[in-house]
Nucleic acid binder design. Structure first.
Lengths: 175, 175
DNA sequence: TGATGAATGTGATATTGTCACGTCAAACAA
DNA sequence: TTGTTTGACGTGACAATATCACATTCATCA
């Protein structure tokens, strides 16, 4: 059965636990990893007229280094270690908000946590799948579904809509 | 324009700010309000083998009395006032978890808050629309959309899936 | 050189959520 | 009746998440 849905699956983390390598043939957008991802992030920030500072790079690296959604405090701790100097949650939130605004990261609402976006140049209303057992998150892009949600909300009179589509459950590995 | 989507709209709160009265003709399920809602909740708990205690009734009433998603602490405060005795958040969480488990209430993940369920007997993966400006929440039931999300997750190997579909935005009244 | 503004630091505090354990009352068995 | 068990709730402590006000640093530019 795997394979059937592979083409819709994008990896979230820079360090996936298992190597479901992205099937580039099915992606019209770029998936970045490691340095490439970092460069893409820096480029994207530049495009948006934002600076790419050491602090921002550190936080982005920390975020991308987690293999599951990370809380602001997780990131603060990781960055503190990496830089040998305490970084306050405060500063992390500030930068995470910026990342979310520039599409470099996304917030997983049902986990109060954040993930790096593997293809910051593309705008999708992505759908997160979060395993209640292991905490791993993957995401799928299904523009038809998310468009449906968008339209339903607009139909109900909502404007500037921002869909939050997540699914909690038990992942294949934990079954 | 109103009317077109009315048949899909269920009111969340017992005290809606505006009186969009439910169009019963379009609902195959029961919508409850006030005492009827309370009775339905009590009945549902009984069905599930759970007690309907004073504390639970107070918390349910408080929850249903808000016209928007209420945090556990909001509810604790309301119940404390109503009963003239301090109720700890702790106890509120316990009971809210129970309510969510019995479908008497739902958690709005993107707001860290809860709402009473107007038709506890029906199981829907409902879609919340939350206004970033006024905080009001409505919900729509679109089984086709939520089924789509469910299926996408199951297709990706997830089991025991629990969709979280919410939309943040600006509501008609705030436009 | 000094003013300005963006980025970050610092400390305090607010909000949300959990844990361990104690008390009380209803139900039930001896 | 009396003792035991069980579920509901109380209490205090604390953990985790999030925000606020204001200070400091530093590059830039007039």
């Amino acid at each position: 059965m795997p394979g059937a849905w592979r083409e819709a699956r994008c990896l979230l983390a820079a360090n996936p636990r298992k190597s479901y390598l992205p099937d580039m043939s099915a992606h019209s957008h770029q998936l970045h990893q490691g340095n490439a991802l970092r460069d893409a992030a820096a480029r994207r920030m530049a495009e948006r007229g934002e600076q790419w500072t050491d602090m921002r790079a550190s936080i982005f690296d920390a975020l991308a280094g987690f293999d599951r959604p990370a809380s602001a405090y997780d990131i603060a701790e990781a960055v503190s270690k990496a830089r040998g100097k305490r970084v306050a949650a405060n500063s992390v939130y500030r930068i995470l908000d910026l990342f979310v605004g520039t599409n470099l990261a996304r917030r997983v609402e049902s986990a109060n946590a954040y993930v790096a976006n593997q293809h910051p140049g593309c705008l999708h209303d992505c759908i997160f799948l979060i395993c209640d057992t292991c905490g791993q998150a993957t995401h799928i892009d299904d523009d038809k579904l998310s468009e449906g949600v968008r339209q339903a909300a607009e139909h109900a009179g909502f404007a500037e809509v921002r869909p939050v589509i997540e699914v909690r459950g038990r992942c294949e590995d934990c079954s």
